[in-house]
């Protein structure tokens, strides 16, 4: 059996998202009464069990919106989301208790997701209690262990989110997500405000859990050097759509979509050796389009340095150019 067939067998997929659209109405002035922010505009992807799928892309392209929609915090306009083969959008958008245990999210902005009126102990106890992970008399010890996992001293249990640093909040959110012993974790920029040493420790801890317990991660980040080292596949988004998906090595060595090439060419690195691995610098020019008025044709054409006549008229289809490598571009 070839690789592709294996990937498409039903039971290996833990999550699959089909034709997902999430629109937000534009509020305010009358003249835009019927307009929508097309945050996610027809997205298809799947994640195999035990995979680490990297989701990268432009700021504002809809990555967090996909994450929130999976968690049931946004109502999609269209599309389906299957978790372990079950349609999770069916039940009036309410997620089952088992889904809430199995699927956890680390939010991009930990500052706003931690209740400032609770101390860290209360914050970590909640998932332990709700999902009955340990018995009552073991709660304190479990909180201690949760802090150990992210290398925070145990006396942090008595601090409040307002009296700890930015990076420390991120660590608390990661600790909280791990409390319910989930199977699938969405990590939205989990280490972006940590120093590289703590980042390395947290990532190693996540990779260890991944290996030992066959966890699956949807990993959203802007750090392409980090992504290079941890993901199995990478998907890249631009203006509500996925424009390229490839196994990690292919993504970095044979990027085909002009947006991918532009992104890779702008990575800040720390050595000459790495500079040489980047595609030749593509300086970003042209107007960045609005998700309310998405350009006709290929939505990247206003900034693409390779565009041809057809690009502004016809939206290219996603095409599989080699097994597992999908590109949405007229030139690919």
């Amino acid at each position: 059996m070839n690789e592709l067939k294996q990937q498409t067998t039903v039971d290996s997929k833990i999550l699959s998202v089909k034709n997902l659209r999430v629109y937000f109405p534009v509020e305010g002035s009358k003249k835009s009464a019927h307009k929508y922010v097309k945050a996610v505009d027809g997205v298809d992807f799947f994640i195999n069990e035990g995979e680490i799928l990297g989701l990268v892309g432009e700021s504002g392209s809809g990555k967090s919106t996909i994450a929130y929609t999976i968690m049931g915090m946004n109502k999609p306009k269209e599309g389906s989301i299957l978790f372990k083969g079950e349609d999770i959008l069916k039940n009036n958008d309410k997620r089952s208790i088992s889904f809430k245990k199995d699927v956890q999210i680390v939010f991009q902005d930990p500052g706003s997701s931690l209740n400032p009126f609770q101390d860290i102990r209360q914050i970590l106890k909640l998932p332990l209690k709700v999902h009955k992970i340990v018995s009552k008399n073991q709660l304190d010890e479990a909180v201690g262990k949760a802090l150990d996992r992210v290398e925070l001293p145990r006396n942090f249990a008595y601090k409040t989110p307002t009296s700890i640093g930015g990076g420390e909040k991120q660590l608390v959110s990661i600790a909280r997500a791990l409390c319910s012993e989930p199977k699938f974790i969405i990590l939205d920029e989990p280490t972006s405000s940590l120093d590289v040493s703590i980042q390395a420790k947290i990532i190693n801890m996540l990779l260890k859990l991944h290996d030992e317990q066959k966890l699956t991660y949807l990993f959203i980040t802007h750090d392409l050097s980090l992504m290079r080292n941890i993901s199995t596949r990478v998907a890249i988004m631009y203006l509500g759509k996925i424009c390229e998906v490839a196994p990690t090595k292919t993504f970095y060595t044979r990027p085909l979509h002009p947006y991918t090439q532009m992104l890779l060419s702008s990575i800040p690195v720390i050595s000459e050796e790495e500079e040489e691995l980047k595609p030749k610098k593509v300086v970003s020019v042209g107007e960045i389009p609005s998700p309310v008025d998405i350009p006709t044709g290929c939505s990247f054409h206003t900034r693409c340095n390779k565009k041809i006549d057809i690009c502004s008229q016809k939206d290219p289809f996603m095409r599989e150019v080699e097994p597992g490598h999908f590109v949405r571009c007229h030139l690919a």
């Binding site: 990268v56 892309g57 432009e58 700021s59 991009q108 902005d109 920029e189 972006s192 405000s193 802007h222 392409l224 532009m262 992104l263 702008s266 990575i267 800040p268 970003s284």
Partner: peptide, 8 residues
């Protein structure tokens, strides 16, 4: 921290 590398 939350910007893609081209915008950054």
């Amino acid at each position: 921290t939350a910007l893609d590398v081209t915008i950054q």
